[in-house]
């Protein structure tokens, strides 16, 4: 299949493309899902992270 000797290698080749398509399709359907507002906790985390970045 696909010029490849072993069906398991052909399957890997196909699944690489299928996994990519899964990612693309998922992204299209979930493009606007999961949005949440930035909370006080998120802001506190981000400010602490900035301090940590400065230490680098």
């Amino acid at each position: 299949m696909l010029g490849l000797q072993d069906k398991w290698v052909a399957l890997a080749y196909i699944l690489c493309i299928a996994s990519t398509l899964l990612c693309v399709v998922y992204g299209i359907f979930a493009w606007n899902k999961g949005q949440t507002d930035v909370s006080q906790e998120d802001m506190r985390w981000a400010k602490e992270e900035k301090k940590a970045e400065k230490k680098m």
Partner: peptide, 17 residues
């Protein structure tokens, strides 16, 4: 948010391929 992660999935998938 999770939305940013969702949106990164298709681009990440193509990139890794």
């Amino acid at each position: 948010s999770q939305r940013e992660l969702n949106r990164a999935v298709p681009i990440g998938g193509v990139f890794i391929l």
